[in-house]
Each structure stands twice: as C-alpha cells, then as structure tokens.
Amino acid sequence: MSSIITPTTRRQFLSFLAVSATAATAAAACGSAAGSSAAKKTTTLRYQGSVGQVTPAELAQDLGYLGGVKLKWVGNTISGPQDVQSAATGQTDFGGAFNGAVIKLQAAGAPITSVIGYYGVDRDQYGGFYVPDDSPVKAARDLTGKKVGMNTLGAHYEAVLDIYLQRNGFSAADIKKVEPLVVPPINTEQSLRQKQIDVGVLSGIFRDKALATGGLRKLFSDYDLLGAFTGGTYVFRDDFLKRNPETVRAFTSGVAKAIEWARTTPRDQVIDRFTKIVQTRGRNENADSLKYWKSYGVAGKGGVIADKEFTTWITWLEQQGQIAKGKVKVGDLYTNKFNPYAGGGS
C-alpha cells in the first residue's frame, strides 16, 4: 500500500488541504461522539514510512527505545501534509509534516497537536534548489515562468521558495509566475537531468547522491535563507493524546532518545544500522543511498520544540493570506510535556 498525494498545482493543493481539514474535523468529531468513553487504549501505532529511508520513529523501534509500544507500517508517503491528514482522520495514529502544514491544518479545524520535532535543517541536512550546470537560471529573476520540482505543495519547500522570491523583490503576482510541481524525491534528480523541470529540490541522501554524480549547481537552500532549525514535527490527534497519554509518552521518549543516538553515534555506525533496518524490513527497497546520510537536522535536543519553529511560518502564512491574522496561537500547536528532554532533562 502506498499513499502519495496527487494534486500537482498550488490551487489544487490548497483545495485538497481545505477538504482534508474538514474531513479530519468531522472524523474526529464522529470518533469522539461514538465512543470516547469506551474507546480502547492502544500500544500499537499505525504510521506511514518513506522509501529507502529510516525515520526517527523507525530507528527508535529498532534500538528498543519504544518499550512496549509497537509500530505498524501501513504504507509509504512523500507528502507531510498528507501524512498528518491521515493521522487527523484516523487512518494512521501519528504523522509528520512541515510545521507550516501543521499550522494550516489546525487553523482549518483539524484537532491535532505536535509532540516532537523529527526533521530539520543544518549545515549537513538541508534542502537545496538545484539546476543543471548549463541552465540559464542563475538568479531569482530567472525563475519567472520556470517549473520547480519538490516533494509536495503547501509545505516546507514551497514556503522556502516563496521566502526566497520575496527577499529578492518578487511581488505576490510575480511569485505566481513561478510554478511549483510535485515530483517524488526519488525521481527529482532524473527529472532535472532530463529537463522535465527547470529546478529540483534535493535534500539528504538524494542530494548527496546527485551531487556525487556531478553536473548540478545550487541556486540556494533553506539553510542559506534561515540557518539551522527544526522544520517538522510528529503529530497525534487530540482525542488520541487524551486516551493514550502513556503510549504517547513512551513514543515521544523513544524518538527523542533515537534522535540523540543518531546525533552522538559515529556516522558509519548509524548508516550501518539504517542499512540493516532497510534490508530486513521487506519493503522491496534499495539501501544504496543510505551511505550519503549525514543528519536528521533536528535543532532541539531530543526533538524538543521551540516557539520560533512555528512563529516563523505563522507569520509567513498570515502574510500570504492563507490563515487569518491572529487566528493561530503558537501555544495551541504543540506540547513538550511528553518529552524527557524538555526543561533540560535527559
């Protein structure tokens, strides 16, 4: 089973997001009304993975850090917004996405809360916007009328692209002349080299693999623009948090420990562990790209969430008119209460 987002334009994606949030709210309301008092507690968490990659949650399980909590893989996704929408509607128990996408879903009424950061940006783990060496695109103004391939719309890389264009003098009308398109990360390099797109967003192992082949040039990156930050968080439905606080605590604690294990363990040992996980989980994947892994990029120790990791995107979404000014309060978006590293813990 594979859940992959299908909208390919900005307008289609925003419509999809609005419908998803409405569905998520309705599903959660039905679930609460139907059996909040009788609902069973759970220690098995359904989730979506990523092809050829090992998420912090999967690493935590392999290291034995989740205690009695078990993960149940139900498919793969390339889209953070789709992943948290699946959690909000009850198709999965947790999901992860760019914090801006979490904000938009919650603003639209989805009853979800972030509990821990799981990916971010640093000098090793960043998303670069790349063009072929012979591309005429050399500066922001050259992007007018060009196609930019990224993993999903309405999320991290579209936000970064907009910020880059704004900082280079683009008006709202000018920004609409640059066309973001959905291209699965595993296909981005090929699409870029075959000139099916003009610019491709490459990150992590896919970026380093492409750069090792050569022939590509970086236009800019999210690290260039914003420095180091945690970009995405794992979320649970609010009713799930209320019903299963100890399960969420065990999950969050385990993921936090796994993030720190990956941060402090020699890189070759981390890659070896990742490779064994991918080779033994039976998903018909190629583990070759894992040798390029460098970091999860999470800024806060153990994935502890900071206000600024949401306020940056609240401001951007308000400026874009995608959420009403003042509608979303940062304190309503996340909690660190399940994370043992919060408040200086370990």
Rank of each mutant, 00 (worst) to 15 (best):
G80R: 02
Y47R: 02
I314C: 08
D208L: 15
A155I: 09
Y118P: 03
V54M: 05
Y119N: 11
D134V: 02
V201H: 05
D307W: 07
L66A: 04
I112S: 06
P340T: 01
T8F: 03
V330M: 09
A24W: 00
T42K: 15
K329Q: 15
I186V: 15
L219P: 08
D133H: 13
I205R: 13
T8E: 12
N151V: 13
A101P: 08
L105G: 03
I163L: 14
M150A: 09
M150N: 05
T315P: 02
T311Q: 02
R217V: 00
A18D: 15
P132D: 11
R207I: 03
G326L: 10
V121H: 07
V235Q: 04
L66E: 04
T44G: 00
T43G: 00
P7K: 00
D93N: 10
T280D: 14
G214P: 10
K104E: 15
L165T: 01
G31W: 04
K257M: 08
I305A: 01
A250Y: 04
K72D: 12
A306R: 14
R217H: 11
A250G: 04
K276W: 02
A173N: 12
K276P: 04
P81F: 01
Y223G: 08
S36Q: 14
Q269M: 11
I197R: 08
K40L: 13
Q125V: 06
G297R: 08
Y118F: 15
R10M: 06
N284T: 11
I116G: 01
L71E: 01
F310P: 01
Q322V: 10
V148G: 03
A87G: 10
P132H: 05
K195S: 11
G227H: 01
L226V: 01
A27Q: 11
Y292M: 10
G154K: 00
V160S: 12
I197D: 07
A256F: 08
I175A: 10
V19C: 07
Q320M: 13
G64W: 06
L45C: 01
G343E: 10
A173L: 05
L165Y: 07
Y296Q: 07
A87I: 11
T43S: 14
V51M: 11
F129G: 07
F310I: 03
L333F: 06
T280E: 15
A250H: 07
K218H: 02
V137W: 05
H156K: 13
E260Q: 12
K104Q: 15
G169W: 06
L161R: 05
Y130P: 01
P180R: 01
I277D: 04
L45Y: 08
V160R: 05
F98T: 00
L59R: 04
Y118T: 15
L202S: 01
G90S: 09
D307M: 02
G215M: 10
P180C: 02
K146P: 03
I271R: 10
S289K: 14
I5C: 11
I112P: 02
S289N: 14
Q194W: 03
F310L: 02
I4D: 05
K195Y: 09
M1V: 08
F338Y: 15
A159F: 10
T315E: 15
F13T: 13
S3R: 14
F229D: 04
V131I: 07
I116H: 05
T188C: 07
Q106P: 00
R10D: 10
W316C: 03
K41E: 15
F220K: 08
N339K: 05
N187T: 12
E309K: 00
T8G: 12
L45V: 06
P245N: 07
